[in-house]
Amino acid sequence: MAVIFDPLRGRVRPEASHPDAEIIDMLTKTYSDAEWAVLTGAGMSTDSGVPDYRGPDSPPRKPMTIQTFLSHPDQRARYWARSWMGWPRMRGTRPNQAHLALAELSVAGIITQNVDGLHQAAAEAVAADRGNDAGAPAPSPVIDLHGSLDRVICLSNGHLFDRDWVQRRLSELNPDFAEEVGIDPIDVETAPDGDVELEDTAGFAVLDCPECGGLLKPDVVYFGDSVPAARVQAANRIADEAAGLVVLGSSLAVLSGLRFVRTAAKESKPVVIVTDGPTRGDEFADFRSISRVADFVTAWASR
């Protein structure tokens, strides 16, 4: 397992540039909601029980890289055992107030680095609350920049499978595994990408693609992997057409998110960053809040 270098090492949390009320005034009075692209990170989902990699209380983690996953059958068994153990808890997460408040806003689009599907779940919850209101705005488009854990993809031919179906098949192949390792899947803590810390994975049977026998992996971008070009293009369209960018709960430690901030700054578009820790893009922020994301977005939505 690779140790992932922390690009935030040595950075400290900046001071807030303005009071939240002034930032929200700018968001709502200078521009309309529909003129803002929103980039979200792990800080959006911590209140839902999904930990982040770089928060102040986060333990050191060693996420699997795509190179390690492809290197040997034992590594794939290791990943799938940990993922199989973590899926029940990840599947049970629900949108928190930050997701729900953002879903109330009709922004140009949401580009998320998260793989938990909670933005879509929040949009469904808000739509259900609105009922048959013909005047209700359409949900903001969501781009899952790093993929989604509820899908599994065949690396040979691109076949897609529902994660719950794969979970059932893995359970059938490994009926006694949880008992053998002495862990209850409901009680374990998951990592941000849905797996759990589990050392003893020997003997875990991995499922191959039922269509062609190819390797299966969750349809997410691993460390060391690339975001699919079509997904990048869809995210770029949202960012290019927006008047400005709001970053919520992301440390911007990975380039796939940071580049949206750099591009907006280069084009002299306003950049708002809201998170309670340091980020890799603080020098590009025109407006910087260090409030909790849920508090900020709730105040924004209330305007």
Rank of each mutant, 00 (worst) to 15 (best):
64 M>G: 03
46 T>P: 05
87 W>M: 01
165 W>G: 03
52 D>P: 01
172 E>S: 12
254 V>M: 10
292 R>K: 14
34 A>C: 11
89 R>Y: 00
170 L>H: 10
68 T>G: 10
90 M>Q: 05
135 G>P: 08
232 V>A: 15
98 A>N: 06
267 E>V: 11
267 E>H: 14
130 R>N: 08
235 A>E: 07
245 L>I: 10
36 W>R: 02
95 P>F: 02
92 G>H: 05
281 G>W: 02
47 D>C: 05
289 S>C: 07
85 M>D: 00
59 P>E: 01
267 E>P: 08
65 T>H: 05
277 G>P: 10
17 S>Y: 08
39 L>S: 02
281 G>L: 08
175 P>W: 07
297 V>T: 11
203 G>T: 06
262 R>T: 13
96 N>K: 08
192 P>D: 04
213 G>L: 05
85 M>G: 00
42 A>C: 07
41 G>S: 05
233 Q>H: 14
44 M>L: 09
60 P>M: 14
243 A>F: 11
254 V>L: 11
85 M>I: 00
270 P>R: 00
174 N>M: 03
242 A>S: 13
303 R>K: 13
48 S>E: 00
277 G>N: 13
161 F>K: 07
75 Q>I: 09
98 A>V: 09
238 I>F: 06
115 V>T: 10
215 L>C: 11
238 I>W: 00
231 R>D: 10
105 L>P: 06
272 V>S: 04
272 V>E: 01
171 S>W: 08
263 T>H: 15
178 A>Y: 08
18 H>T: 10
29 K>Q: 13
155 L>S: 07
108 A>G: 11
5 F>D: 13
98 A>I: 07
192 P>E: 04
140 S>T: 11
272 V>L: 05
213 G>V: 08
198 L>Q: 02
86 G>F: 01
293 V>F: 03
189 E>V: 10
18 H>I: 06
250 S>F: 04
131 G>S: 08
166 V>S: 00
195 D>N: 00
235 A>D: 07
282 D>Q: 08
258 L>I: 09
39 L>N: 06
45 S>T: 03
215 L>R: 12
131 G>Y: 07
55 G>I: 06
162 D>I: 03
20 D>S: 12
66 I>Y: 09
192 P>K: 00
74 D>K: 13
49 G>T: 01
199 E>K: 12
43 G>K: 02
92 G>Q: 12
123 A>H: 13
225 D>W: 07
294 A>R: 10
192 P>H: 05
46 T>V: 15
204 F>W: 07
154 C>V: 06
85 M>L: 12
159 H>S: 14
131 G>W: 09
86 G>Y: 02
32 S>T: 13
191 A>M: 14
42 A>P: 02
269 K>I: 09
116 D>C: 04
86 G>T: 04
258 L>K: 08
156 S>A: 15
245 L>G: 04
281 G>A: 11
79 Y>N: 02
248 L>P: 02
294 A>H: 13
68 T>M: 12
175 P>Q: 07
111 I>V: 14
228 P>E: 03
188 V>K: 01
121 A>P: 04
